[in-house]
Design a binder for these strands. Structure first.
Length: 168
DNA sequence: GCCAACGTTGGC
DNA sequence: GCCAACGTTGGC
């Protein structure tokens, strides 16, 4: 099946792209997603090998896309933090036998040579209908069209050979 | 730190 | 099932 493309948001103060690079195997379970639409994307559409723009949110002028990560798990699986009463992601209403929240693993793939800021994305006509540049768009996992994915990667300074290596 | 946007909750 | 209240996100 063809790859799908995504944008995943993280606050760099909480978990940055650099943090992902420093994880064992450069891979980390993407837990704590507590939004049904985002969950449904993970459940229904994300698959191993899909690529995501890693987006730093809530970071002032540094808000923007910083690199590329890949889905490293075979589809979504239950997010254990929903059952952990000590976790900030604990959900008392999540039945033990029927997980309400899911997660996938993301693996660090490639860092941009430079930040592609939200401001810059908004100023790029080619990206006009990309979700992330739209007002009030808060989804932490968003689908991205291939043309937008490629355009952002190019703005970030990834070379054609780097893109080819990623399979874009 | 402000506040608009917007998803979720819960009373009715 | 409506919708006001509330909480969170995230740009600015």
């Amino acid at each position: 099946m063809a790859k799908s493309f995504w944008l995943i948001k993280s606050e760099p103060d909480v978990f940055s792209f650099e943090d992902l690079a420093n994880c064992p195997g450069k891979t980390e379970p993407w837990d704590g997603i507590r939004n049904y639409q985002a969950r449904n994307y993970m459940r229904d559409e994300m698959k191993r090998g899909d690529l995501a723009l890693f987006y730093h949110s809530n970071a002032g002028p540094e808000s923007g896309a910083v690199g590329v990560a890949a889905v490293a798990s075979g589809g979504a699986r239950p997010d254990p933090s929903q059952w952990d009463s000590k976790s900030k992601y604990y959900d008392a209403k999540a039945p033990k036998d029927e997980p309400r929240w899911l997660m996938v693993d993301f693996k660090w793939k490639a860092a941009f040579k430079r930040l592609v800021s939200l401001k810059e994305m908004k100023e790029t006509p080619e990206l006009d209908d990309m979700l992330v540049v739209k007002r009030g768009q808060r989804l932490s996992i968003q689908p991205v069209e291939l043309k937008h994915f490629r355009a952002v990667c190019e703005m970030g300074g990834l070379s054609p050979s780097a893109l080819k290596k990623l399979g874009v």
